[in-house]
Amino acid sequence: MAGAWIAVASAEHVRRGRAGGFMQVCHGKAAPLRRIRPGDRVAYYSPTEVFRGPGRLQAFTAVGTAHGGEPYQVDMGGGFHPFRRDVTWLDAAGEAPIQPLLGTLGFTAGVRNWGYQLRFGLFAVDPADLDLIAEAMGTRFPG
């Protein structure tokens, strides 16, 4: 069975990845991306609209399926060379706030400090959580 992952980034950064067909996590580190396998499903959670910006968003902002191949490095200028992995993002997905899902997602249900694991930037979840997130975003995974 395909794996399921939650990645964490600002909505602004997630939108760049959706437009370019890629994901990038943990400030561009390769190791976390190597844990994702082709066919694994990924949802992005965005705590904020803008990286280090004021105010909270606390919503899922993208959902998709990882492509094959290894993470690859790109030159973004200014000495920044992050690693990325290609993803097919579900175009129909809208943003979905996490608050209404807290009682139903496996990684948050009954967990008082549910936000703690989001600090890791990428973590595995039960595949059923990805189905719930996709549904809340108004879409579903093919198949």
Rank of each mutant, 00 (worst) to 15 (best):
R35M: 06
G17S: 10
G69M: 08
G17F: 13
W89L: 07
F83V: 07
P82R: 14
L130M: 12
R52C: 07
L102A: 08
E49V: 09
L102N: 11
R37A: 14
I36Q: 06
L90E: 09
R41W: 13
D91P: 03
F141N: 05
I36A: 11
V8C: 09
G21V: 04
D129G: 04
A93T: 02
R35V: 01
A9H: 12
I36G: 07
M76Q: 14
P127G: 07
G94T: 10
G94Q: 09
F51K: 08
A92K: 14
V74M: 13
H13T: 04
T61F: 09
A4C: 09
Q99S: 13
T104S: 07
G106A: 02
G106T: 12
A92F: 04
E95G: 10
T139G: 04
H27K: 03
T48C: 00
T61M: 10
A66V: 02
Y45H: 10
E12F: 10
W5C: 05
A62N: 13
A109Y: 10
R16T: 00
G69L: 11
D91E: 11
H81E: 08
R37T: 02
R85S: 02
L122R: 01
H13G: 12
R112T: 08
E12V: 00
A7T: 08
A128M: 01
V74N: 11
P54R: 15
A30Y: 05
A134E: 10
A124D: 14
A4D: 12
K29S: 11
R52F: 03
L130P: 05
